[in-house]
């Protein structure tokens, strides 16, 4: 595995009395798309802004190839960032915005037209940003981020404001960038949005790391409960408890069992001649996996 290009080490950030990021550590490897997931307010944007030198950490550090952002000699040639919010002057045209970015970062101005066409804004390059839709602004943000041909790309909620066609375009685009060996870190509060794009997933909640794993593994581990419907609810409950399981009584004839497979329950019922109306292993959707992972932090547990 290549050495990580993004490294977050024991990062903590306090805004007044609010702890936005709490002892967070993770590393991101090049050549892959890493999803940075968590509910709104989990600390994703703060973490990314610390990484980009915009917010000062209270403790710990965030580095790109071992250097904090402010130490990078040509930051916009190394790292491209697409952050949320209005980052454009409404009265400036898209092409002029890119000219400003190029001038300030000493980037090749020859790439401006190329980038505008890459994100499909060629015919709007001369238009003032105030007339742009949210999706067009996202595309302009991506063009600006790629102007310096960076090895590392960081995107904060890039799917916001994109229509389904735009999201599909973004997915293909991010995958292509990762295939070129670049590092792509993309945050989202909606897992399904990114599920077809990311290789690795980092989940945070309340500023803390909840999970960091390849996507397949995360989904594989998070299996659902088994739902049983039987006229013999009382007897099955007692039996399962006798087997060391912890069934949950949903109603008179329905039990949910989280710690037994449907096979185990089927065998027990057959041996005890318990009539079954339903025996369903509930498969969790990605969204439910995500919810399950983050629910406890959201409830303040």
């Amino acid at each position: 595995m290549p050495s990580p290009s993004i490294s977050i080490e024991a990062l903590r950030k306090q805004f007044g009395s609010t702890l936005a990021v709490d002892d967070l550590s993770f590393a991101v490897r090049p050549g892959s798309v890493t999803g940075f997931l968590g509910p709104n307010g989990a600390g994703k944007t703060t973490t990314l802004r610390v990484l980009l030198g915009l917010v000062k950490p209270s403790a710990g550090r965030a580095t790109i190839d071992g250097q904090v952002y402010r130490e990078l000699e040509h930051p916009t040639r190394k790292v491209g960032a697409v952050l949320e919010g209005a980052n454009f002057h409404p009265g400036r045209t898209a092409a002029n915005h890119l000219r400003v970015v190029a001038a300030a970062g000493r980037l090749d101005r020859g790439r401006i037209d190329e980038m505008l066409s890459l994100v499909g804004l060629t015919e709007f390059g001369g238009k003032r940003v105030q007339g742009y839709s949210l999706g067009m602004k996202q595309r302009l943000g991506i063009a600006a981020a790629l102007l310096g041909d960076p090895e590392v790309l960081i995107l904060d909620e890039p799917a916001n404001g994109l229509d389904p066609e735009g999201i599909r375009w973004l997915r293909g685009f991010l995958r292509a960038l990762a295939r070129e060996g670049r590092t792509v870190l993309v945050s989202s509060h909606v897992l399904t949005e990114m599920s077809q794009t990311v290789d690795d997933v980092i989940v945070i909640g309340r500023g803390r790391l909840i999970a960091h794993a390849p996507l397949d593994q995360l989904v594989g581990e998070a299996t659902g409960a088994v739902r049983v419907r039987t006229p013999d609810g009382d007897r099955l409950e007692t039996l399962l408890k006798g087997h060391g399981k912890s069934p949950q009584r949903v109603s008179a004839d329905v039990l949910l069992v989280a710690d037994a497979s449907s096979e185990e329950i089927g065998v027990i019922c057959a041996a005890e001649r318990i009539v079954l109306y339903e025996l369903v292993s509930e498969v969790l959707s990605l969204e439910e996996v995500f919810f399950k992972l983050t629910a406890s932090t959201e409830l303040g547990a």
């Binding site: 915009l54 402010r70 930051p75 952050l83 209005a86 980052n87 454009f88 970015v101 300030a104 970062g105």
Partner: peptide, 13 residues
């Protein structure tokens, strides 16, 4: 206008 973000990204000093 929020342009301070790209400004400091381009030149963090």
């Amino acid at each position: 206008q929020g342009t301070i973000t790209p400004t400091f990204l381009a030149h963090p000093r």
